[in-house]
Structures are given as structure tokens and as C-alpha cells.
Design a protein around this nucleic acid. Structure first.
Length: 454
RNA sequence: GUGAUUGUAGCUCAGUUGGUUAGAGCGCUAGAUUGUGAUUCUAGAGGUCGCGGGUUCGAGCCCCGUCCUUCACCCCA
């Protein structure tokens, strides 16, 4: 049998893992620094927890898990009927599937908050780094299994949270040395705009369409709006907004005149202004065409693009006012972001940012060559001292030929090899070989440790 | 879901209008070198040409189907 893995999934080699962990450690550290606590939730959720939260398109992308032992069902006629129906259209049958793999971390988090509301002290700042699954067609920067690194604050309306999340994004990308643009918009503004043109019910279609302005241009956006059923009058009303160009201050002034009579829109502008003022970030850009598809956003929305790399957004997020409501805990507002580390990895790889990175802390620094039974015993004691001193060290497990053992160290890029034979055992002075230069020295273990620490 | 694209050795890829036994480089194993890797030399192992069917005297090459890869759309991290 030829081994293979499912479409859109990947194995990660040791080198890739070292690099991924570098990114993950950076994010984790920043999250802790801002006072976020880590949680985990199961890979699978009850299907009812997930459906209806991501829009029609999102529901289609859920990986559903077939119920086990359906062959033992006592109600096979009903099962067959449900199966027949599922061949016709996308329906959920509890008889066929009760569980699905999580699609993101935000909805499971909302479920978690409701279930543990009595144990949580609000506002709750949590982060979560786990894989999610989507039954998408894979392409560049898109996988069926990928990690999200979420940070959310739930139970606080304060815009200070938005500001803090912007600072977190700045911190992380600064540390990773990636040049980014942090784009921000506000759903309330988009709602206001939809209201102005008299199409409040079509806000999702409108936002999805204008989100593509950069990519497909004005004509195509108008065409799509027409196709979605927006009337010509409304489209005309929308034009000034679509063609508007200007810096943040200009844009806000423009929006103010546009949305002056609409409460929601005005509120959105106020929020934006406040966040801009406090964040005081040179990376932050107002982008009124930023929409984001996820249904549950109600306030600020964020998206981060890497400059100079052709790939989708590498981080996204926003405020959601009532995600916990459907689970029975109304009026709890939350705001969060999610780093897509698989895409961040691709970006760093493309920019060559891994080349000069020092990832040695995870690799072996010294290898002891194994010369025989007596030497093994001796080396085991010596290697313990190195490990206790915090130096990554290993002893070659087999009494193989020296050639084989050195080739192993070379392949693993271990910088130092210590040779201890009978001569070294009696003198207590070891032979240490620098694998980069090929040079050899005679040294005591204490001196070796000094050198390796430095 | 729609439209393209790819598949030959562990990896990267050649393979002529269909013609006998499918090649190269790198890697791997062994030796030259019994305490020295990365350089050099020598030898060796490794392939159901993605899978299934068809055309043909004959298919890696042509046709159909299917799966996989990659990419765009939709949507999204």
C-alpha cells in the first residue's frame, strides 16, 4: 500500500517544526505579556454548536463526522430517508451526523464561556492555539487543516480592548520582522451605509461585494451588486463611497457627512476615531472596503496583510456583540483576533526570514561518540552534567563505526562532537571536535561547558 | 461547488513521430580510510512510469474515467 495523507493536510519535518514553534512561541509570549490565559477545547464539537454561525458558505465547509455504528441502528428506515435527503441538498441529520470538526476557535470559545460562566471572572481574556478544519479546496495559503492563534476579550465593551489587540498585532509582527498593514473598519459604518442606500437587509451581500474592490475593480463590484439584486438607485448612491480616496482623516470626515443622520453609522465613526487616537499606530489603516465575511461581527473589524507577499490575510478579527446569545447568555460583548500561523510561515519563508534565524535552542549542541560498553557507561555520567547545565546533548546509541556516527552528527547539524575513548577516560581530558571548522581540541568538561554556554 | 494544471527512483527532473533491457544529478548503502563527517575516487541497491479501463503486433508516450498536486474563482487564516 502506498502511504498518503488526506487532501489539504501536511506533515511537518523537524526543520519546519522548529520554525513553526518559533512563530508560536513569539505569539504565545506576547499573549501572556498582555494578560491572556490559555485554554483548549476539543477538536470536535456537536454539530448544532457550529451550524448557522458562519453563514451558508461556512456551513458547507464543515467537516462532519459520520455517526459510528449506524449499521446497528434500530431505525433504519428513518436513517435511509435522511440519507436520501442529504443526497438532494445540504441538510443536517442527527441520525447520520451529530459531530463536526471545529471550523474556528471563536464559536467553540463562545460555547465555552456560556458553559463555564459561573467559574469565569469577567472580563475574560483568553487565548487559544489549536488546529481548525475546513472542507475547502486547497490552494496557495489555504489548507484543510491549519492552526489559528486566537486572543479574545469577552465581557467588556471597552474600546481599550480593540486598542490592546492592535498593539498585540504590532508587537508580534515587529518581533517576527514582517512588514504589515493593519487594516481596520467598523461594521456599524457598513450597516449605516446599507441603511442609507435603503438595503439594510442586504448588508452581507454588499459588504462581500465591496470587499473585492481592490481585487476586481469598480465595474465588477457594481455588476456583482446588481446580480445580488440591489437596485440601480442604491448602486448609484453607493458610488461616491466606492471611488473615494484619501487618508484616514479625510475618510473619516467624508464618512461623517455621509452618515450624519444615521445613528449606527455615527456610532461606528466615533468608535473608529477613538481607536485610532489611542492606538497611535503607524501600521493602522482605515479601509472602508474591508468587510470580512464572518456573520457574527458587529463592531470593529481587523485584517492584516503582509507587504510584498501575494497571499490572503495573515490575521483577522473583530468585535461580536452577541455570539454567546444563541447559547443562552445574552448581552455579552467580545472582541478578538486570530493569527494564521500557516500563512505567516509561508510569508516568512517567501521573504527568506528564516535564513538568518537562530533556532539552535531546540537542536542538539553536543554529541558523544559511542566507542563501546565501557565508554558508554562513562559518557552517560558526563552527558548528565551537560544536560543539568541546560545544554542539549545526546549520546549515539549504537556502537557503530565512527564514520556513521559523525555523519549522523553532520546530518543533524550538531555543532560539537565529543570523543571519549580509553585514553580520554584515564586522563579526564576529552577530545572535542568543532564540526563546522573540523578543528579538534583537548579539553576538560568544565571548559567545554563554558564554551557551549557562551 | 466552477475552471485550469500536474503525476516517471527517497528528492529534482530528462525520456524524440508509439518500438527491444526506462535514464541523469542529488541522496542512500558499502569500500578506498580498523578513532574522524561535510571534499575526492570506486562499486552497489532502488521504478507495477498515480490508479483503472481502452486503442495497437507493441503504450511512460494516444483515448476515456478516476484519484492526487498546484493555481484561479467562490469563500477565507
Amino acid at each position: 500500500m502506498k502511504p498518503s495523507i488526506p487532501k489539504g493536510t501536511r506533515d511537518f519535518s523537524p526543520v519546519e517544526m522548529a520554525r513553526r514553534n518559533y512563530i508560536l512561541d513569539t505569539i504565545r509570549q506576547v499573549y501572556f505579556r498582555y494578560g491572556y490565559q490559555q485554554i483548549e477545547t476539543p477538536a470536535m464539537e456537536n454539530l448544532t454548536t457550529l451550524t448557522g454561525k458562519y453563514g451558508e458558505e461556512g456551513d458547507q465547509l464543515l467537516f462532519k463526522i459520520l455517526n459510528s455504528r449506524i449499521h446497528e441502528s434500530k431505525n433504519k428506515p428513518a436513517l435511509l430517508e435522511d440519507f436520501q435527503r442529504s443526497l438532494e441538498k445540504n441538510t443536517n441529520s442527527e441520525l447520520l451526523t451529530e459531530r463536526a470538526l471545529r471550523y474556528d476557535l471563536t464559536v467553540p470559545f463562545a460555547r465555552y464561556v456560556v458553559m463555564h460562566q459561573n467559574d469565569i471572572t469577567f472580563p475574560f481574556k483568553r487565548f487559544q492555539i489549536q488546529p481548525v478544519w475546513r472542507a475547502d479546496r486547497p490552494q496557495k495559503g489555504r489548507y484543510r487543516e491549519f492552526y489559528q492563534c486566537d486572543a479574545d476579550v469577552i465581557g467588556s465593551d471597552s474600546l481599550l480592548n480593540e486598542v490592546e489587540l492592535i498593539q498585540i498585532m504590532e508587537n508580534v509582527f515587529d518581533q517576527l520582522n514582517i512588514n504589515v498593514a493593519i487594516k481596520i473598519n467598523n461594521r456599524k459604518i457598513l450597516s449605516g451605509i446599507a441603511e442609507i442606500i435603503g438595503a439594510g437587509d442586504m448588508i452581507v451581500d454588499i459588504t462581500v461585494a465591496i470587499d473585492k474592490l481592490d481585487k476586481i475593480g469598480l465595474e465588477k463590484v457594481n455588476e456583482e451588486l446588481r446580480n445580488k439584486g440591489l437596485d440601480e438607485k442604491a448602486i448609484q448612491k453607493l458610488q461616491p463611497l466606492l471611488v473615494f480616496k484619501g487618508n484616514t482623516a479625510d475618510t473619516i470626515a467624508f464618512l461623517k457627512t455621509l452618515l450624519n443622520d444615521f445613528e449606527i453609522g455615527k456610532k461606528g465613526i466615533q468608535e473608529l476615531e477613538y481607536v485610532f487616537q489611542l492606538a497611535d499606530s503607524s501600521f493602522l489603516e482605515l479601509d472602508i472596503t474591508l468587510a470580512r465575511g464572518l456573520n457574527y461581527y458587529t463592531g470593529a473589524i481587523f485584517e492584516v496583510k503582509a507587504n510584498g507577499v501575494q497571499i490572503g490575510s495573515i490575521t483577522g478579527g473583530g468585535r461580536y456583540d452577541d455570539l454567546t446569545g444563541i447559547f443562552g447568555l445574552p448581552n455579552v460583548s467580545g472582541v478578538g483576533i486570530s493569527f494564521g500561523i500557516d500563512r505567516i510561515y509561508d510569508v516568512m519563508n517567501e521573504l527568506g526570514l528564516f535564513e538568518n534565524l537562530d533556532l539552535k535552542q531546540s537542536g542538539t549542541r553536543v554529541m558523544f561518540v559511542n566507542f563501546g560498553q565501557e565508554e558508554e557507561k562513562f559518557c552517560l555520567k558526563e552527558i548528565k552534567k551537560l544536560r543539568n547545565a541546560g545544554i542539549n546533548a545526546e549520546l549515539f546509541p549504537d556502537q557503530a563505526k565512527m564514520k556513521k556516527q559523525l555523519a549522523y552528527a553532520d546530518a543533524k547539524k550538531i555543532p560539537y562532537v565529543i570523543l571519549i575513548g580509553s585514553e580520554e577516560m584515564t586522563s579526564g581530558i576529552f577530545t572535542i571536535k568543532n564540526m563546522n571548522s573540523g578543528e579538534q581540541f583537548k579539553k576538560r568538561l568544565e571548559d567545554v561547558m563554558e564554551e557551549l554556554k557562551g
